[in-house]
Design a binder for these strands. Structure first.
Lengths: 335, 335
DNA sequence: CGCCCTTACGCAAGCGCTTGCGTTAACTCA
DNA sequence: TGAGTTAACGCAAGCGCTTGCGTAAGGGCG
């Protein structure tokens, strides 16, 4: 591979001049500029990023840490993020963490070892304190899908309370009063926030939400099935299910149908996330849209801004709003 | 961040010694070794990958180029690949190419600029000649999902002919004789290979495959619907559909059902790829398994072997086999 | 016309690491 | 015991780039 030296020799200038032409900083005559550019084209020169990084202590890399890139939700993060990154001439690093703190830490370390300061973290396992500490250490760290007050300007998140509320309100508006919630058993905040949102909707409607209407599970398709069975076997009556995510919702639908119930005629189901398969399944899933792709791309922009223009104005809060996507898994109950 | 120098100072040795202890090459007393290791721990030292790369001209990065990382199929490549890469202490770069030659080239260039020699390419747009040229230039380039004779040992691929044949044979074995093929209109070889495989099965069964039984489309869900409409409107009779991929298959199922046909009672459908949503949709999709995750991880191993041990023995061919996954979208036809 | 300021470029140090070679001291063995 | 080995480490160059500083040439101005 040709080096800056080679280009300099060809253009009959010093390496510093080539470097300046390349970066557009500094002054030079248009004559020199064209000489350099010609040499670059002629030699098919491509700067060595490692040398650049070493010399300038700057790196054009954004790293994504998500539980598992092959899950549809996280795939969108990587995809939306990559597009935004590429638009800024940044390259994209990824790491699967499998919700494991050690893996997450290891990923961060290795990204840092690359000189990568732009890290988008969708963490399930760090505590708020850990995140704050990390954010203070890493200028370009952006937390996706979570809100931590002390580093609010570094968090790109969804209003989960609102989302839960919207979902519940939608069911209530469709005449449902006996609603079961299939939630996700984890310490992180999303599930409880969505439940809280639902509680608000219930309270507003003068309804109450008995504790045994909430089933916690592991958030996968099979867990949706499992939860429905548990619900059905408990003898509890319900006309609608509010699921923590689309996976649970789909599992619930399948199990419901398997056990002879019709969806939505007998039981309505609403999901969360609006993953692409929501319109594949039968019935097509009514769900709450989580604009994760946009959020990922926003997070990248934010991270780059944070590192490239540390003094630039940054919104204090980066909050995204969920929205209802009506399809066919919720039935209007006539009184 | 602490540097090698800092570690050396703390351990009272030269930087070369630290470097040697780190890499395990060269000789040193265990006493020196522990001194160095203690210093490393004490300072929480992490080598600067850019400096390492620059000095050694070696880099622990594997780059994946796929059309779009958020598509389920390609997500599996990144995920399986990342896991294999991490096992070798390699980091993972990704790039979306959107089936665009320029983007693919650009991605390769930028990976190379990082010093990354391990590239896994799932290319839709390069010609065989281009791939050969690239493979000759880049030691660690591995082609995924395609076979090019001249660089056979660099191709990790699926027996698509066999896959098409298996799918057709499965339908035939279930009594179907009027089979429509919903294929993918692209210059690349997969679709035609699968059709060829189907032809073999037809020929073996003494059946023939009229040209107007094959509909070409763009390979997405909507295209499955579109193709079914085209088929239905042409008045052609068929009892089964053999789809190029699961997306088309799902779209076909949906449209069939929409137009009043029952799947599989009226029309059977078989897909290809065995993506995770195949068991979500209704009916659950019978399909051909494409072990892409395993292939991706294999490709990474191969690439690393190619660059780290250029003289090691490498299988001449890396061929994976598809297999039928029986679910409920194909009905046995009684004579 | 001499002075100063700017413009346009070159010089060279240095980013943090690897590695070939050199050096020292300990060790082997006839 | 002295020549030759070898083990264990240090020296320093150099990977390809950036960038602060220096400087020569050109231009403006009184």
């Amino acid at each position: 591979m040709p080096t800056l030296q080679d280009v300099a020799k060809h253009a009959q200038v010093s390496t510093s001049t080539v470097s300046r032409v390349l970066s557009g900083k500094g002054k030079f005559t248009t004559e020199v500029q064209t000489r350099v550019q010609n040499a670059i084209k002629l030699l098919d020169y491509q700067p060595n990023s490692n040398a650049q990084a070493l010399a300038s202590n700057r790196v054009s890399l954004v790293g994504f840490i998500t539980p598992s890139i092959s899950a549809p939700f996280y795939g969108q993060i990587a995809s939306g993020g990559e597009i935004a990154a590429r638009a800024h001439k940044y390259r994209t690093l990824i790491a699967n963490s499998f919700r494991n703190t050690d893996e997450e830490l290891e990923a961060i370390r290795s990204f840092q070892a690359q000189g990568c300061k732009n890290i988008i973290l969708h963490s399930m396992s760090f505590t708020d304190e850990q995140l704050i500490e990390l954010a203070n250490k890493i200028d370009g760290l952006v937390i996706l899908g979570r809100f931590v007050e002390q580093i609010a300007n570094r968090c790109v998140w969804l209003d989960n309370v609102k989302g839960g509320q919207m979902a519940a309100e939608y069911l209530i508006a469709n005449g449902h009063e006996d609603i079961a919630i299939l939630s996700y058993a984890q310490t992180q905040c999303d599930p409880s926030q969505r439940i809280n949102g639902a509680r608000i909707a219930f309270a507003n409607a003068g309804l109450n939400l008995p504790q045994d209407s909430i089933i916690f599970n592991q958030g996968q398709i099979a867990d949706g099935s499992w939860s429905v069975n548990k619900l059905l076997d408990s003898g509890k009556h319900f006309s609608a299910i509010l699921a923590y995510n689309d996976l649970i919702a789909v599992g619930a639908c399948k199990e419901l149908i398997k056990r002879g119930y019709k969806v939505p005629e007998d039981v309505s189901v609403i999901g969360f996330d609006n993953l692409f398969f929501a319109e594949i399944c039968t019935p097509e899933l009514t769900t709450v849209n989580y604009p994760i792709k946009e959020m990922a791309s926003y997070a990248v922009e934010l991270s780059i801004k944070l590192t490239e223009q540390p003094d630039a104005y940054v919104e204090r809060t980066h909050l995204f709003m969920p929205s209802i996507v009506e399809r066919s898994s919720v039935k209007r109950l006539s009184k």
